[in-house]
Amino acid sequence: MADIDATFDEFLPEALRFRAPAPLVDIGANLTHDSFGRDLEAVLRRARAANVATLIVTGTDRAHAEQAVELAQRYPGLHATAGVHPHDASRWDTSLAAAMRELHQRPEVVAVGECGLDFNRNFSTPAEQERAFEAQLGLAAESGKPLFLHERDAGPRMREMLRTWRDDIADAVVHCFTADRDTLYGYLDLDLHIGLTGWICDERRGHHLRELVGAIPLERLMVETDCPYLLPRDLPARLKGRRNEPALLPWIVREIAHWRDTDEAELACATSDTARRFFRLPQAGEDQENGRAQQEP
Score class of each variant (00 low, 15 high):
Q295R: 14
L192V: 04
A89I: 06
L78V: 03
Q283R: 13
E264M: 06
Q295M: 07
E134M: 05
D167Y: 07
R74Q: 14
G83E: 00
P228V: 15
A49P: 12
H193C: 12
E130G: 00
A247M: 04
F36R: 08
H208P: 09
I169E: 05
G285H: 03
R238G: 11
D287K: 07
L196G: 08
Q294Y: 03
W92Y: 15
M1W: 08
C176V: 14
P21N: 01
P228S: 15
M161K: 09
F278G: 00
A275P: 12
A68K: 02
A20E: 05
D88F: 08
V25Q: 06
H193N: 13
P250D: 04
E142T: 02
R62D: 15
A15K: 10
N120Y: 12
I194K: 03
N30I: 13
E134W: 08
A65T: 12
G195K: 07
D26P: 07
H64S: 15
R181E: 15
N290A: 15
L40R: 15
L231S: 10
V213H: 04
Q295L: 04
C227E: 08
G113L: 02
R292K: 13
E245G: 02
D171R: 13
I56A: 06
P13G: 01
A53Q: 08
L221C: 15
L221D: 04
R101D: 14
T178R: 00
L103A: 01
T94H: 09
S272V: 09
R205G: 03
T262C: 10
F123P: 01
P232L: 04
P282H: 00
L248A: 04
L55D: 01
M158H: 04
Y187S: 00
Q105E: 13
N51D: 14
M158S: 03
Y185Q: 13
I169T: 09
C201D: 09
H208M: 10
E151N: 15
A82H: 02
M161N: 07
E219Y: 08
A99Y: 06
E41L: 12
F18P: 00
L231G: 11
R121I: 04
L249K: 05
N244P: 01
E151R: 13
E203T: 11
T183H: 02
